[in-house]
Design a protein around this nucleic acid. Structure first.
Lengths: 207, 207
DNA sequence: CAATGACCATACTGTGTCGTATGGAAACGC
DNA sequence: GCGTTTCCATACGACACAGTATGGTCATTG
C-alpha cells in the first residue's frame, strides 16, 4: 500500500536560471553561495539566513547546499570570513592616500558610509554587528575589523598632524558616528541635513 | 483505540511560582508580560521573542498568552508602546536641568549610555533599532523617540550658548556616537579607554 | 561504452513555532 | 448554592526549518 512514487512529477526544472543555453552546467561555486547568503543576511538579518531560503534563492534545493557545506554553521563561518576579507581590502584601499590629502580622504570616508550610497554595505555591516551581539564568532570578526579600521584611520589623523592619543579618539569618534547615524532615524530632524552632516564631519575631522 | 487521556497527568503544577501560599491568584497583568517580553527582546533579539518561550518564562503556557493578547503582533505593538513611553519619560528626566548645569548634564548623559552601566537599556535600544530595520511599526517608534531625544538635547546645547544649527549637529553627533560606540568592539584599541572617552565627550560637548 | 564522481532533487524525520479549540479551576455576583 | 467570568492547561493542526538518506543526471575518464 505504499505510495512511493519516487519519481513522479517535476521535470521542467533542471534547466534552471543558469542562462538558457546551458553554459556548461555552471557548478554554482561556494563563493556564489556565500555572496547570496550575504545578500540575504543584509535584507533579513542573521535569523533570516535559512538554508532552504538560500537554496531557493540560488535556484536549487537543500540537497545542493549540503553537498557544498557541512551544515548551516559552516556557511555562517564562510560568510564571516568572506566579509572580513572584503572589509580588510576595502579599508586598505580607503586609507592609503597621498601625503597631504589625509583630511580630504577622511571626509570622503565619512561621506562614503553616511550617504545613501553604499546602502547595501551598511545593511551588511549592521546585520553582522547585530549578529555579533549573540555570537562569539561574529563578535571576534567584528572586533578584528574594528581594530584594523580604527588603526588605519588613526594613522590618517596622525599624518594630518595630530597627537596619537587625539588621533585615536578621533578615529573612534568617526566610526562610532558613522555607525550610529545609520542606526538613527533623523530625516525629519532638520530640513537641511546636508549642513548638519557637514558640521558633524568638521567636528570630527578638523581641529 | 484512541488514547485520549484528556486529563491524565500534570497536577502539581497549578501552584506555580506565585509565592507558595497562593496570594490570591495574582492575575499576571499584561504589563508583566510586556516587561518580560522586553527582557527577552534584549537578550535574544526580535527573532527570539516567541510566544511559547515568553509564556514559559512567565511560568504559564500559551493558553494564557492568547487570553491576554490577540496574537503575537499585539504583543509586539504593546512592547513598542511600552518602550516608547519609558524612553520619553527617561528623556524628560535626563534633560530637565537647572540653568547653568547644561554641559554637566550632557556629560552625564554620555556617560550614562556609554558606560557599562545601563547595559540592559542599551541592549534593548539596539534590539529595537535592529527590529526597526525590517519593521515599519518599530521604525516609526524609533523615529519618534529619536526626534524627541534630539530636540531635548538640542535645547540643552542651545541653553549652554550655542547657535541652533550647531546645537542640532551636536545633538545628532552625541546620540550617533553613543549608539555607534555600543555597536563597536574597541576594548583592545587602547589601554586607556577612559582617556579616550573623555576626549570624545569633550569633542562632542565643548566648543 | 562503462564506470566514476560531481552536482542536485526528493522524501523523510524531528523539532519549534503560531494560532485555535476546548475544558478545568478558582473567584465573584446574586 | 449556582451561574458567570477570569485565567490558565492541554491537545491539535498547519507550517517552516535543519539535517539525513537516497537516488537521479550529466560530464569526464579510462
Amino acid at each position: 500500500m505504499e505510495n512511493k512514487p519516487v519519481k513522479p512529477p517535476a521535470k521542467a526544472k533542471r534547466i534552471r536560471a543558469r542562462g538558457e543555453s546551458a553554459p556548461a552546467r555552471t557548478p554554482l561555486a561556494p563563493e556564489h553561495w556565500v555572496e547570496i547568503a550575504i545578500d540575504l543576511l543584509a535584507n533579513e538579518g542573521i535569523a533570516g539566513l535559512r538554508v532552504e531560503v538560500l537554496a531557493k534563492r540560488c535556484g536549487v534545493t537543500k540537497g545542493s547546499f549540503y553537498w557544498h557545506f557541512k551544515d548551516r554553521q559552516a556557511l555562517l563561518a564562510a560568510v564571516l570570513e568572506h566579509w572580513k576579507e572584503g572589509r580588510i581590502r576595502d579599508i586598505e584601499k580607503t586609507t592609503t592616500v597621498a601625503p597631504g590629502k589625509e583630511s580630504e580622504q577622511l571626509h570622503f570616508a565619512i561621506e562614503l558610509y553616511g550617504a545613501s550610497r553604499n546602502r547595501k554595505g551598511m545593511s551588511i555591516e549592521l546585520a553582522v554587528r547585530d549578529w555579533a551581539r549573540h555570537d562569539a564568532q561574529a563578535a571576534a570578526v567584528v572586533e578584528a575589523v574594528d581594530l584594523y579600521r580604527l588603526d588605519c584611520t588613526r594613522k590618517l589623523f596622525v599624518s594630518s598632524g595630530m597627537s596619537d592619543a587625539e588621533a585615536k579618539s578621533r578615529s573612534l569618534l568617526l566610526y562610532a558616528c558613522v555607525f550610529g547615524l545609520s542606526l538613527m532615524h533623523y530625516t525629519h530632524f532638520d530640513d537641511n541635513l546636508g549642513d548638519l552632516k557637514q558640521r558633524i564631519a568638521e567636528r570630527i575631522i578638523s581641529n
